[in-house]
């Protein structure tokens, strides 16, 4: 074997060892609870059946998809429009307002926890999808990095479009958005994953189990300890796998975009 291939195998092995908790989780999720405790593996899909059915994880999965999806689309729309304005227009107050957007990157989210809870309580949006979605929609990070990206697109293209007869929104939609697609895609993934994994806000805002996201559902399932006298670990692991899997699949499909989105701007 060539040394290159050998190194690849070694790296693969090291990576698998590092990821072994996750891999073992997936393996465990296919074991019957009795066989897990007995130590003699018997494979089954019952854990998934139970998790998705009896324990409502199908519903949580759909909730998570809905909330993360809407937050991603809404967040991108707001961020792209603002990024375009900050990248391409000079206007009174523009620098100040941009600074206000960027400053949100440094503002710790915990300070908004109680007030946002109170705001949503006041307008009756606790225990609603809107209550999960609205506070997560604004994303200063996405606005900041999309602005940096748009500034890299030659301004002459905008001007050509204006000369061709476009209005600002047409320039944004027909020229800037197609050309910024890699950045928008990366930011979309970033927003989606962040929202998918969001825990503290749904924990605060939701008490109706119909609206649980996967994160809340999983934490509850683990805590409430389904099982007679011992924890039903295989069931918990099936639920964990359901929680991880969409991101895992997405990760394998688009790792490059994801890495670019996450490193973009961190390094000049």
């Amino acid at each position: 074997m060539k040394p290159e291939a050998l190194w690849s195998l070694a790296a693969l092995a090291a990576g698998l060892i590092f990821l072994s908790p996750v891999l073992y989780t997936i393996w465990m999720s296919f074991l019957t609870v009795d066989s897990y405790y007995a130590g003699t593996p018997v494979l089954t899909l019952d854990n998934y059946r139970a998790a998705l059915g009896e324990f409502d994880f199908l519903r949580y999965l759909l909730n998570s998809l809905l909330v993360s999806g809407v937050v991603t689309l809404g967040g991108l729309a707001l961020a792209v429009m603002a990024a375009f304005a900050f990248a391409r227009f000079t206007f009174p107050g523009g620098d100040f307002l941009f600074a206000a957007v960027v400053a949100t990157l440094m503002i710790p989210s915990h300070i908004t926890l109680i007030p946002n809870y109170l705001t949503l309580a006041k307008v009756g949006l606790l225990d609603s999808y809107a209550g999960l979605i609205l506070p997560a929609i604004s994303n200063g990070f996405a606005a900041f990095f999309l602005r940096q990206y748009i500034r890299g697109i030659p301004r002459a293209l905008d001007e050509a479009a204006y000369m061709d007869g476009a209005r600002p929104l047409q320039v944004l939609w027909r020229v800037i958005v197609p050309l910024a697609r890699p950045a928008i895609l990366s930011m979309g993934l970033y927003i989606f994953i962040t929202e998918w994994n969001n825990y503290i806000w749904p924990l605060v805002a939701i008490s109706d189990s119909d609206l649980y996201t996967l994160q809340i559902g999983l934490a509850k399932l683990y805590r409430e300890n389904p099982g007679e006298d011992v924890i039903n670990w295989p069931l918990v692991m099936a639920a964990s796998t359901i929680t991880i899997l969409p991101i895992l699949i997405g990760f394998l499909a688009v790792e490059r975009h994801l890495v670019r989105g996450i490193t973009m701007g961190a390094v000049k």
Binding site: L19, V22, T25, N197, L214
Partner: peptide, 15 residues
């Protein structure tokens, strides 16, 4: 190896 090391950072903290 990079991919393997990076994976947990995008994975659910709860899980």
């Amino acid at each position: 190896l990079r991919g393997a090391l990076f994976l947990p950072s995008v994975t659910s903290t709860v899980a």
